[in-house]
Design a protein around this nucleic acid. Structure first.
Lengths: 211, 211
DNA sequence: GTCTATATTTTGATAGAC
DNA sequence: GTCTATCAAAATATAGAC
């Protein structure tokens, strides 16, 4: 036969060593938390020994921080639609839908972020202070501008953002609870479309002026 | 002097042994999670040795389940106001305010519950299935009844509940994030009153019919 | 880069005195 | 009921060969 190229042995060995480790670590940290996840299990999932894992990442803390950074890059800036020139109705609808899609597509990222904040958010404090806070301040100004122009009810824009964050991230972080009390999976497309429409409706009617 | 009565030695020794342990365990599990919390630290906080702790609770799992049960009893049924005869506006406002107060007064309970759900909710599955789900079903019927009577917009009542839960519990579980991006403490009364009013306003305007 | 084997540390849990 | 001392298990991290 012709020349042998890259030889993927099995599913777990897709991609480079670091990528496999990061994927495995993300799953495990999301499921068990930083303290609950074990390097032995992560190494197994990545298809290598713990020694090999330590070759790529000095220690558990270093690996965890690498996962966090990977996640924060995913924490895409969907707030881009919140701009002064845009129509508040369209902008907020697009933002809520983007957040809901994120919750469905990257539940592990959401859970790790939630777990880190639950534990005090010390490791992501720089991100919160240097990236998220300026973003919140900027978008708050935009929202306040909409209110002053009579396009939106008068409210503290930060709490509007918190309501949107709380509601949308709930579908990722509390999926286990939802599946029991709603008897539906957060991976079920129809169910999540209804969820999306309902959240959009409540938020829009909740903030747009009465007509 | 007169006869010596109960002799409180220091602050940590208030109450009976079990109560002191439960309080210390609640703090530690909320801060570090089940896997992250250590019995040594819990015992220290409770003012006793790990051996004494093991005398009261066989093992870590037993202690954790005791904390969970204590918390689930706290998970008061504030949904009591959601009754067919009541006015939806007053009922939903009362419910949201009760949930917000709970988030401020019992943040540790909220965090432990969140951490457990994040981890799969396996230990509280019976509670979710036997208590919370029937409650959700019953209250969903009430809300649907309000909608049919034209007192409320038409929507899936479960998603309304999820929006309320997500938004209100966000203030407890993501307090560390809020304190950085909003530069306000979730223990600050003024800040939380504004939060409460904003969440109430969005939810009410979001679900009440247009006038 | 990855392995096997092993060292080190942490932590949960027990024994036995008081 | 609580203590000191200790054990046992689990998990992190390293050594050294390949």
């Amino acid at each position: 036969m012709g020349k042998v190229e890259r030889t993927p042995r099995d599913v777990r060995s897709r991609g480079t060593g670091e990528a496999r480790i990061l994927r495995a670590a993300e799953r495990n940290f999301a499921r068990y938390g930083l303290a609950g996840a074990t390097l032995a299990q992560i190494a197994r999932d990545a298809g290598m020994s713990t020694a090999a894992l330590h070759y790529h990442y000095r220690d558990k803390e270093t690996l965890y921080r690498a996962v966090l950074e990977h996640i924060l890059r995913l924490w895409l800036d969907e707030t881009a639609v919140i701009e002064p020139g845009n129509d508040p109705r369209r902008a907020l609808e697009a933002y809520v839908r983007a957040k809901m899609r994120f919750a469905r597509i990257f539940p592990d990222a959401s859970k790790i972020f939630a777990s880190e904040v639950l534990g005090g958010a010390q490791r992501i404090a720089p991100f919160l202070a240097d990236v998220l806070r300026p973003l919140v301040d900027a978008k708050s100004s935009v929202i306040t501008g909409w209110s002053r122009a009579g396009k939106l009810r008068t409210l503290d824009p930060r709490h509007l953002l918190f309501v949107i964050w709380g509601a949308t991230e709930f579908y990722a972080n509390f999926a286990a609870e939802i599946e029991v009390v709603a008897a539906s999976s957060t991976q079920d497309v129809r169910f999540m479309e209804e969820a999306e429409d309902t959240v959009v409706a409540i938020v829009l009617e909740g903030v747009l002026p009465r007509r």
